[in-house]
Design a protein around this nucleic acid. Structure first.
Lengths: 213, 213
DNA sequence: TCCTGAACAATTTAACGAAATGTTCAAAAG
DNA sequence: CTTTTGAACATTTCGTTAAATTGTTCAGGA
């Protein structure tokens, strides 16, 4: 499918290997020696690929997050209408992590991966590009008069946050509830809140002012 | 308004004082001596009111959370229809914390107050009783055929989690976005997802199956 | 371009006494 | 009987050290 240069293949192997070790031992307990040894190279040589240990970790996690994002995007692109695109993207992303215990473990070891706080950079770019995909779907839905008019920047950020919250509840802490069915129910509730009724009225700015008795 | 016994008044003062100190210095840096001194008593006497330092902290935070909850409940009870009840409760809760920098600071110092994870008890009971109020509104809305039929346990937990997520985003981390307007937009989106269209059709089990072309 | 291995720098760990803080309780005050 | 005191006691933190581990650099070689 993909043609890859020798260098890329090696780098990819590096990230996959490192991810397994970070998952198994956590950031602190995995030594750069551990990673180098698993790849049958010396630790000195690792510094040919990454700047330092922190850089190794960030590149490794970024690599994993990008694959995750790609899975959601692929599912989205296989649908034609925006509602299905929205739904499939959400479901695919959940199923990806469901089937990826290694990445899940890394998230459990370091929940701050999702932080997106202003001061920290780290994975902001990756998170933002995932949000951008979501935003594009929302924009298209609004353009087609299928979704309510909205501030797509705010709502995409909001929905992304809700999605992250779900992930944390379900996979980082493993809470009693927050089951898969709960995710589906919340997803359908959200879609109802997004989608205008089949009758495409233009500019339905009903801020629900009129109290129905 | 409220008639209080001497003992209750003193306990209340204790919690208010402790909250200020925990807000200013954090759990670790506030000594029981600090709290006792501020109340002009010896630290030994504090142990007449609480079991130990941890207990002092938990009772203090619980006291504050309960007042917060009461503010939301009061706002809810002043409305007559479920949609307004839902909306007012959410808005009142946000405004309460908006106007309460001390409690806000305590939450910033210790975000795990909201955790509700299975292993930890701490504030579970308080959180659960807040969720119960929300759940009651949802149940009433479903009963009156104003809200879509739903699993109220799942959806109330979901909505409570979304609410907590907002609080954390806005007050614990202080993120660039997640503004007040974003909260309002998300609230309206949620209400649209909850409320059936004015035409009260019975058992609208539309799982959005029919693809609209 | 990629890799080695040894030198060097930085961080972590363990140990330990001193200081600070948390907790208990007999006795006293109200 | 309830509330408070104050000193004794228990526990945890802090500051300091030295050794061990781990991270990083780099001259040189495949």
């Amino acid at each position: 499918m993909k043609i890859m240069k020798e260098r890329e293949k090696k780098t990819e192997l590096l990230f996959e290997t490192a991810l397994e070790l970070f998952a198994a031992y956590g950031y602190k307990k995995t030594t750069v020696d551990d990673v180098a040894a698993r790849l049958s190279m010396t630790k000195g040589n690792l510094y040919f690929y990454v700047k330092n240990k922190k850089d190794l970790y960030e590149k490794t996690v970024n690599h994993a997050l990008n694959q995750w994002k790609a899975a959601g995007q692929k599912a989205m692109e296989s649908e034609t209408d925006v509602v299905s695109q929205f739904r499939s993207m959400a479901i695919a992303a959940i199923e990806y992590i469901e089937n990826n215990p290694t990445l899940r473990q890394v998230l459990m070891n370091d929940p701050s991966i999702f932080t997106i706080s202003a001061n920290e950079d780290r994975f902001r770019k990756t998170n933002e590009s995932a949000m951008a995909i979501l935003k594009a779907v929302l924009e298209e839905g609004v353009r087609q008069n299928i979704f309510y008019p909205m501030d797509v920047d705010h709502i995409s950020e909001y929905l992304y946050s809700v999605y992250i919250m779900f992930l944390i509840k379900r996979y980082v802490k493993s809470e009693s509830s927050s089951s898969k069915t709960m995710f589906r129910e919340a997803l359908e509730l959200t879609i109802r809140g997004l989608v205008m009724s089949p009758v495409t009225t233009t500019a339905a700015q009903t801020t629900s002012k009129g109290g129905k008795s």
